[in-house]
Amino acid sequence: MLHIVNKSPYMKSSLESCIRVAQKNDPILLIEDAVLGAAAGGGVESLVQGALKNHPVYALGADISARGLSSLTPGVKVIDYADFVDLVEQHKPMTWL
């Protein structure tokens, strides 16, 4: 299953709930405000690093660029909309709104 998160982990617990429930190796995709959680050196970096131990973590490049994030937590893979489509093709999606 593909877990899509769109909320900033600084504001909402969606990413935490997602990580708690997601099965091992399920991919997690950060879109919209959730990409703020992928910025290196932030207060939620340990949460993302924890997720990376059990899951591939992706972040949508358009949202990262739009927010001017230049340095991301190592291990987070930046993808485009076409890659997003591929992830949906490979996994049934669940959006953590």
Partner: peptide
């Protein structure tokens, strides 16, 4: 528990969040 919720989600064809 969390693992149980994760497991039943995995069994679905479609998940609609509200």
């Amino acid at each position: 528990d969390s693992a149980g919720i994760g497991k039943i989600m995995e069994e679905q064809d479609v998940i609609l969040p509200f």
